[in-house]
Design a binder for these strands. Sequence first.
DNA 1: GTGGCGACTGGA
DNA 2: CCAGTCGCCACG
Length: 727
Amino acid sequence: MTVLVAAIAIPAPIYRLFDYRVPAAAEGLLVPGMRVRVPFGRRRLVAVVAEPPREIETEGREYKFIEVVLDQASVFPADLWALCRWAADYYQYPLGEVLSAALPGPLRRGDDTEIRRENALHISESGRAALETLPARSHAQRAVLQQLATTPCTRGQLLELLPKAAASLRKAMEMGWLLEVPLVIPDGVIGPALAPTPEQVTVVEALRSAAKGFSASLLEGVTGSGKTEVYLCLAADAVTRGEQVLVLVPEIGLTPQLLARFNERFGAGVASFHSGMSENERADTWLRARAGEARIVIGTRSAVFVPFAKLGLIVIDEEHDASYKQQDSFRYSARDLAILRAQKLEIPVLLGSATPSLETLHNARSGRYRHLKLESRVRQTAPPKIHALDVRTRALDHGLSHPLLEAIDRHLTAGGQALLFINRRGFAPVLLCHDCGWSAPCARCDAHMTLHRGRGRLVCHHCGAQQKAPTTCPTCNSKTLTPVGQGTERVEEALRARFPDKRVERFDSDRLRRAGELERLLADIRSGEIHILVGTQILAKGHDFAGLTLVGIVSADQALYGTDFRAIERMGQMVTQVAGRAGRGAQQGEVILQTHEPEHPLLRTLVEGGYIALSDALLEERRMAGLPPFSHLALLRAEATQADAPLRFLNEARNLMLADRESVQVSDAIPATMEKRAGNTRAQLLLQSASRAVLQRKLSAWVGQFDSLPSARQVRWSLDVDPGDLY
DNA sequence: GTGGCGACTGGA
DNA sequence: CCAGTCGCCACG
């Protein structure tokens, strides 16, 4: 008997597609990209049609029917569909899982694709009157009314701009100060452009002159050089042509300014897409972009899968940022997918960074990308010079040397602010017993637990395990427990003690857990109330602190001993980004980098020549070592509770690969850098090839066989194509 | 991923 | 002896 079946992609970690019979009512109507509800095992799942229906010979087999066809057309526009299929092949991940990752939650669960139309909030006559008569202290109330008086927007958009306005908004509604009007999306640009600098004009003109079609351009611009204004000009061009724009950013919560600038210029045409939004809000952006209503979508990694009716430009801000690479399950690079998407759509893509990744620099140098530079800072101050301070033999007060403390004093006295950067949370990374050598090991990881003295706890930063911090050694009862090394908490405390009349604030994920906390502290920095900032990378991201004149980097030496081939590149980016926070106001900034390795050639290159000189040196090293971008990598990882299973599995996989490896190098299977983590033993194996295509072809051939290896059942394995880290 | 099934362990 | 647990398998 022949039946009509369609291959369906199931959202489960299974590499094959499953054939289901097409119900008579759907014959001739079913196309790839439509969602369907199908019985799968005992369950009912929402899955996606992967291939057009076809007639097959049943050969006695019973095929289940598609139970419900949920869509009348593909939910994925053609370019997004092609992107997802490509990504599933390239990252060796099941298509059903990829499609599932591309859909917002409600659609994944089968909700319909109607846009729930929100009303825009406008200010009413009485609202205008109230604005005049509000008491001076009603800041929050005034902010809400003022915002809506200038730019009417939806409730969601308003709360994004004024995160704490929920109560004021409710009050304004009750008082009749607001009118709800069906949302009208403006056709074009609504706000005025700033007066661009001559340099910005040159860059924008150069980008405009690109031939129609695909082009990739690197916009290399130091912090404060005005990359955002360039994005805005090009976005305005696209919007004026009736096209949409996708803007990718590393973490939206850390860059409220960028969102605010786009909102000013494009008003209600801007929609955002990030993990801080509710699933329904994300679905709303997704559907509105698909309908062509959202002109500009600003979002994080997963926004690369937002569909568009007519996408005309993609911007990738801070393109070097590691958060564009997903580090678990579906390990895609949003940057790379965005570039591919632009290529397929034949539209331009603009990559912006002060510290471009080596991959991108290499592409720019080899002429594959255009390379544009913004070299002067908008506010005329010279970029800060980094001074490497040799701390060998110097006394350190909780990690801070005397010259650094002096410099802080000097800058504070001169009315400046200081920023201290340490890439480590907590008080101290190790709590050591001076008598017996006990060092607070984590029971489930090959790591020490970090002392968080404020909370009185030991916390493992790798598995999250916590316990009360002991006051006496648990093995020898001695009272000589000594915190070794320093984290943000310790430096904060040391600075408070040293500068008792100054306000010192810490910026790390522990401190900024509550919503709105970052905004509150940023405001206090701008107003000059905070004198010293101590923090992690959070401080290295796009904030503008006009009064900041000194940046102290407590130590960046860790990267110099690092095992990962990207460690120094990352360190250079971080140091340069954090140094860029200094001296954006009138005064020239000073940057002090404490080190025990002042002679290290790469550190010297960074200090003397800056990030670009460092990247030249690193690229040369990569060329010699045959590492990316001069080769392509994939990492096969395995972990298991049973200690010998991961290596056994990887060796089995290795034998399989060695038998048929073409021009792919297959490394030995080795234990991971931190072999035990969260109770699992971990191991890995590196695959390397000069040819991306060959590597991909071989991976496709191998991946399907891994699950049938004898020890596959004992491990959890994953394949990471273009890994960000090798551990 | 997840539910079902047979095999196994443990308490009564 | 039966219940709860565990590894293994199949899912169209």
